[in-house]
Design a protein around this nucleic acid. Sequence first.
RNA 1: GUGGGCGUAGCUCAGUGGUAGAGCACCGCGUUGUGGCCGCGGCGGUCGUGGGUUCAAUCCCCAUCGUCCACCCCA
Length: 425
Amino acid sequence: MTEIIRNVRGMPDVLPEQAVYWRHLEQTALALLQRYGYAEVRLPLLESTELFTRSIGAVTDIVEKEMYTFADRNGDSLSLRPEGTAGAVRCMIQHGLLHTPGTKIWYQGPMFRHERPQRGRQRQFSQIGVEAFGIADAGIDAELIIMSHRLWQRLGLAAKIKLKINSLGNRSERQQYRQQLQDWLRQHQQQLDEDSLRRMETNPLRVLDSKNPALQQLLAEAPTLLQQLGSASRAHYDQVCAMLSASGIDYQHDDRLVRGLDYYSHTVFEWQTDELGAQGTVCAGGRYDDLVELHGARPTPGIGFAMGQERLVALLEQQSLAASAPLLYVVVQDASLRAAAMQLVERCRDALPDATLLLDHLGGSMKAQMKRANRSGAVLALIVAAEEQQRGEVSVRHMQSDAAQQTLPADELPGWLAGQYASLH
RNA sequence: GUGGGCGUAGCUCAGUGGUAGAGCACCGCGUUGUGGCCGCGGCGGUCGUGGGUUCAAUCCCCAUCGUCCACCCCA
């Protein structure tokens, strides 16, 4: 027998039952983003590899070992996007959209990282990303966070998701801190584990993320970024915090929140849940005031965040989403009546543009068809049979109540159905 | 990339060194033109794959692949 081909590891299918939650998430998010003035962009999945090495940071794991990179037929190095901000920035610069300050965009789609799959982590995963360009004021930092909080509320997830924030300061403050932290870590080398010793050299800020409990205790004594901030950076961060407080947003300042990507500066934040195991970050982002300049355009501040759709869907699946039942399921006595039945259903569809009307195409005994009608959850079953047909009539059976089956002229069916539909809504 | 758990029917799982079972699902019958509940019957498995031990392996051993969880990384 021919071997059955499976999906590629880490690239999962979304089946109908789950897709309902995806739709719900995307529709809810889209409506909210529009209300805050964000415009949609559609970005390619493939970009020049250099775009990512330049913006994400050459020594990050994402670039070093997680990108799907390959040579195009002409030899160019291309990569499947491992995140969305780099492509968004590229797009904005390329099309001159940064000349008008205050451009706000969003995008949605799959990202790719070659990681070992585990709960809440796939090789192809989807994000909804949001970016605002050209706004230096702390108000946009706060608004982005407030907007995301509003989304959690809309989705009924607010109680499960907590906000952590920190400031990484500007480039020079961060560099100074990096040096300071590295020195401090060196003094405590003998207490560090293998991973941390490695990161101490390559990316010392990441040591702060360690999950090793013994290390966490030690790191509580380490110098903090906040202490290192100059007055302007500190004022910016304080403003963000003040605006969040004023809006009633609960947040927790976290000295160890440093984010994985190199391009962040100033405000960084993560929305986390403890209901998804080890991958609890459901939405994360921050400022990247140097990124546009890094890509060769005029310096332009930026800020954005990305939501992990799989993770949010996993939380949404804990609640039930009422699927709307079909109004009608059409049962046909024998195949010779199917054409007439189809015409009748189409007339009904003309009269009820929003209702779900199903015609049985599998045939078989009426008993078998009625079983399918029942399983479909339809409110009504329409029976198209020879005897009624000769009188120009059809029968309607109420599947969800004890009401008696009734017979009515086929011509009156669309109008009668519309009445039934109206009484249900 | 590292470590651990698990791979038996479409799904959830039980089970035994002598080549397998349940529940659910699916199909049919109990109505000559009518669902749900109930009863009866049926379909469905190279027990992940390859090798080894054994008279004999789905069961024991090894390898491999897949999957899940954690590390790592991060949405």
